[in-house]
């Protein structure tokens, strides 16, 4: 079943040096419960696309629908509640002057879910779900480690009880040991809560291990969309092969696979 459908979506920015086509006539669908990876380098339009899905950037043209209902640029609170974001930089994504609890509670306040004590209970539960002590809610972001802050970012999105999570490079700023734990957590949460993920990243090795399908973007266009298995056994576009060829590998089986897919560069 399709949860989010995108049809011929475009975004053009007007700049002093002429129009910039950040996203060009992109069409694809995200299925209920899947993890769709969006892969691309800087300038691929992946962030612009995410901002249009999240409703913080108006489209130039095209259609979006969520759960078979059209998703306008001017979102209802129900629209907003069902699509949440986890950002890349866990330091900047939390307001340094607000407590963790206040940040996580923002969605509940905005959508007016429950009374005051129920909201605090939800905040505690969300922190618990991401493996943090609910008592951390009283602290400010500066006293937390990078991994803990990223967990708070996930808890903030979860507290809203969303159906779709847009994960924008959620682990690129983290150390590899912390990354492994966060990816595990995201996997568990998706399974337990039946969430749908749009996982934006440039790291194909991460994609291989978390995504069901992969959409490869280049210069605002969708160049390849296929199941993860297909992408990593038989990549179709030159650009996908180029991206796979650039992945640094750590063991010989990986090296053999890379060489098989893209030739010994």
């Amino acid at each position: 079943m399709t949860l989010l459908s995108i049809k011929e979506l475009s975004k053009t920015f007007r700049t002093p040096s002429g129009p910039v086509h950040a996203v060009r006539e992109v069409s694809f669908a995200v299925n209920q419960g899947e993890c769709l990876a969006i892969v691309g380098e800087s300038g691929s339009g992946k962030t612009t696309l995410a901002h249009m899905i999240l409703g913080v950037l108006a489209r130039t043209s095209g259609e979006l629908s969520f759960d078979e209902q059209p998703l306008p640029d001017k979102r209802t609170m129900a629209n907003r509640q069902s699509i949440q974001l986890v950002q890349q930089n866990p330091l900047s994504s939390l307001n340094p002057k607000r407590t963790i609890g206040a940040s996580v509670r923002l969605g509940l306040d905005t959508y007016q879910i429950g009374d005051k004590s129920a909201r605090w209970k939800t905040v505690g539960a969300a922190l618990d779900a991401v493996g943090l002590e609910p008592s951390l809610g009283k602290r400010v972001p500066a006293t937390l480690s990078g991994g803990q802050r990223q967990r708070v970012g996930i808890a903030r999105a979860l507290a809203c009880n969303p159906r779709l999570l847009v994960l924008d490079e959620p682990t690129s700023a983290l150390d590899v040991l912390v990354q492994a734990r966060i990816l595990q957590l995201l996997n568990t949460l998706r399974r337990e809560r039946g969430l749908t993920y749009i996982f934006i990243t440039h790291d194909l090795a991460v994609v291989r291990n978390v995504a069901d399908r992969v959409a490869v973007f280049q210069s605002g266009q969708l160049v390849e969309l296929n199941s993860t298995d297909a992408i990593f056994t038989d990549p179709q576009s030159t650009y996908t092969r180029q991206l796979i060829g650039a992945v640094p590998v750590v063991d010989d089986t990986e090296l053999a696979l890379r060489n098989k897919l893209v030739g010994n560069q």
Binding site: G55, R75, M77, Q84, Q88, N89, S92, S93, L106, D109
Partner: peptide, 13 residues
């Protein structure tokens, strides 16, 4: 900053 984007995504006024 990211926290402003976070609040906008949630839909805070």
């Amino acid at each position: 900053e990211g926290y402003v984007l976070a609040a906008e995504v949630i839909g805070a006024n």
